[in-house]
């Protein structure tokens, strides 16, 4: 049954043509879902973590997971007909690069607002790196909080970290693809959406 493995490198050039803007708005409910299948779209500007995540994601046997990779949004117009309904959009942000964050922020404009009802999540790598300015992490947090999306942290350098990040994405994906009875994407996102923590450097207990 399983081992469905669609590996589409959708958009590599990174050039955003204004013509595409209206046409390629990614919509969550414009197509019918597949039977016992889930589609996940990984958006990462640097294309580093994507690959290993995708390899691990398609190992899932309980449901057929189709992984699609993109460098940024919008997706090209050509494949629009054949493209299945995307159940979860994951923006992977490498905190050590400013570009990565900016690219994700720019891509968000090409998402239908319907996705923000629990079908988008952010995955951040290198958050514990000393060279990361704290402002950048704060900015990502603010973005995720403003969109009411979950913000996941991943240890992309170790195999264990990749495995666990995959598991977490799968658990969200299953809900957002409607495969978990009694749970919807909106319900899960109301439980997991990110909030901006106030400055916890000096918790004043007095």
């Amino acid at each position: 049954m399983s081992r469905g493995f669609v590996y589409n490198i959708l958009f590599r050039t990174g050039i955003v043509l204004s013509v595409y803007i209206r046409m390629s708005l990614l919509k969550p409910f414009s197509k019918l879902p597949g039977l016992n299948a889930a589609n996940i779209l990984l958006v990462e500007c640097e294309e580093q973590f994507q690959k290993s995540l995708a390899d691990a994601l398609v190992e899932e046997t309980a449901v057929t997971v189709y992984v699609r990779l993109a460098k940024s949004l919008p997706l090209p117009k050509e494949n629009e007909e054949s493209r299945p309904r995307i159940d979860l959009v994951v923006f992977i942000i490498n905190l050590t690069s400013e570009l990565s964050f900016q690219s994700a922020e720019a891509s968000l404009k090409y998402l239908d607002p319907g996705y923000l009802l629990g079908k988008v999540c952010f995955m951040v790598t290198n958050a514990r790196n000393a060279s990361v300015p704290t402002e950048r992490l704060d900015a990502v947090r603010k973005l995720a909080a403003a969109l009411h999306c979950p913000l996941l942290f991943a240890e992309d350098q170790t195999p264990d970290g990749v495995t666990y990040a995959t598991k977490r994405l799968l658990s969200i994906l299953k809900v957002s693809a409607g495969l978990v009875p009694m749970a919807t994407a909106l319900y899960l996102s109301s439980l997991t959406s990110c909030t901006v923590p106030p400055d916890i450097d000096q918790p004043s207990f007095d």
């Binding site: 996941l152 977490r168 997991t192 909030t195």
Partner: peptide, 22 residues
């Protein structure tokens, strides 16, 4: 932890981890 702090220090981050994990 005083109850005024417990929500933001502990519950918020744990909640997100809890519901997105195995």
């Amino acid at each position: 932890i005083p109850s005024s702090q417990i929500e933001r220090l502990l519950f918020k981050p744990l909640m997100q981890l809890f519901f997105t994990s195995s």
